[in-house]
């Protein structure tokens, strides 16, 4: 895991929250914006979100923890997402994923000790006719091979 999670000042969190207050059902857009800005959902955001939206802290925590996308600590500098779903399995996706994980010495959701690479599973990128599929730092790869994925992630 990355060494330390730096504390984010409350004012910065509140500024992000304020941008979305006029929306109907604003919590998910707020969480996405917080994560885009800080790389994770800072723990300090929970009471601030609860206050802003008149919710309990437990409710806010419940929402954050429900969704796979939201992280409580930043990911590695590069994020590899490999599709584990059926269409990619039909094209050898499982073996390819095992190779990537083995080369990095990781299990799913793991981050290398130097904080360089995180590997996440994803259940379908919509590239089912050119599997196996992966995404490295937002770049899509069809007919992916382990070597190509690792090279894209600089590993």
């Amino acid at each position: 895991m990355p060494a330390t999670v730096k504390a984010v000042p409350d004012e910065q969190i509140s500024a992000v929250i304020a941008e979305f207050m006029s929306l109907d059902g604003p919590l998910l857009p707020m969480l996405h914006a917080l994560q885009a800005r800080f790389g994770h959902i800072p723990a300090a955001a929970v009471p601030l979100l609860a206050d802003a939206l008149n919710l309990g802290k437990a409710e806010v925590h419940g929402v954050i923890s429900f969704y796979h996308d939201f992280r409580d600590a930043p990911s590695g500098r590069h994020v590899i997402r490999i599709c584990r779903a059926e269409a990619c399995q039909a094209m050898g996706g499982e073996t390819m994923a095992e190779r990537v994980l083995a080369r990095l010495g990781l299990d799913w959701h793991g981050t290398t000790a130097n904080g360089a690479v995180t590997v996440e599973p994803v259940y379908c990128l919509g590239l089912c006719a050119c599997g196996p599929a992966a995404m490295v730092d937002g770049r899509l790869i069809g007919r992916a091979e382990a070597g190509r994925i690792l090279a894209e992630a600089g590993a």
């Binding site: 059902g25 604003p26 857009p29 929402v63 429900f66 969704y67 796979h68 996308d69």
Partner: peptide
């Protein structure tokens, strides 16, 4: 609006909860 990686939100009532900002 953008989902957050939950497959079950493709179910219409889960999707509505998610749009409202709930689990």
């Amino acid at each position: 609006r953008v989902g957050a990686g939950a497959y079950v939100c493709g179910e219409e009532t889960s999707l509505l909860n998610s749009l409202e900002g709930k689990r």
